[in-house]
Amino acid sequence: MSSASNDRPNPAFYALLGTLIFMAIGPVVLMFVNSFKLDIDIISGTSGLFFLPTIQNYEAALCDVLWYEPEHLDYCAIRFGGAFKNSIIIALISTVLTLVIGCMAAYGITRFRFMGRDTVSFATLAVRMVPPAVLLVPVFGLWNNTFCLDRDGMIGGFIRDTFGGRGDVCLAGTHSGIILIYVAMNLPFVIWILQSFIVQVPRSLEEAARVDGANPFQVFYMVVLPLIKPGLAAAAIFTFRIAWNEYLLASALADRDTKTVPILIVNNTSEFNIEWGVIMATGMLLAIPPIIFTLIASKQIITGMTAGAVKG
C-alpha cells in the first residue's frame, strides 16, 4: 500500500473491492437464484444463469396459506404458512413490548436518576454474555412446570372452563411464553441504547412543556419520543432481528401450533434428502425482512453496532 490516503486508488484496489463485494453477497445471491430453480436444475448444475425461473418452490413453501391450489402439488407437505404467521406474531409483539417497556425504563433512568449509567451498561454487558443455550435448561424447566396456572386456581379454572384442555395452562407452547423470554433478553440492550439518546434531549425543552401544564407522561410522549426516533429505529431493528431469527429457545418452547420458521427449516434440513429448492425459498422468505431493514436503515444498524462495542 502506498503511503497516504489521498493518492489515486490503483486498479488493484478496485479489484480487491470487487472481490470483497462478491464474497459478501455471493452466497445470498446464490440462494436467491436457487430458490427460483427446480430441484433438477439445482442438482444438474448446468451453468448458473440459464434456467427457467419458477415460483413453484415458493408455492410449495406457502401451500397452506395460498388462496389457490398449485397444480404441481397434490399434497401440502411442509406447512410453512402457519409458521410464518407465528414468526410474525412473535417478532412484532415482542418488538413492540420491548420498545415500550424499554423506553419507559430508559427515561426513568436518565431523568429520575434511579440507577447509575454504569449499572445499566454493566447489565447490558452481562446479559449479552449469556448464551441462549445457557437459558435453555432453566427456561425449559420453569416454563413447563413453575409458570403454570394451576387447574385449581381461579384464572386457570376460568381458562379451562372457557377453552377446555387438560386443566393447567403453562407458558410453554404459547406465543406469550416465547415472547416473554425474547423481551427479557432484549431489554437491557434497548434500555442502554435508548438512554444514550435520551441523555441528549435538552432538559429545558421538557421543563418548558411542564410549565405549559403537561404531566410527566405527556412530556414523555409529546416531547421526548419524537426526538429519539433514530434510537428507536436502531433498537427496533435489533430486537426484531433477534426475535425473528432465534431458533434454540423457540424450539424448546414451541409446540406443534406455535412453531416459528427457523424451527421448520432446521427440521427439514436434518433429513438425509433435502429438497433444496423449497428449503431455499423458505430461507429466502425468512431472510427478506432483515435484508430490507439493512438496505433502508443501515446507518442506524451501524450506530447500534458500534455503540455496543465502543462504549461497552
Partner: peptide, 28 residues
C-alpha cells in the same frame, strides 16, 4: 459497501447455515 457488508450479520443464522451447507455439498 458497508451496507452490503452487514448483510451476512443480519440474516438468520439458520439461513446462513443453509447457504453454506449447500455450497459445501459433496457433489452439487
Amino acid at each position: 459497501l458497508r451496507t452490503l457488508f452487514i448483510l451476512p450479520m443480519m440474516i438468520a443464522p439458520v439461513v446462513v447455515g443453509l447457504m453454506w451447507r449447500f455450497m459445501y455439498h459433496p457433489t452439487d
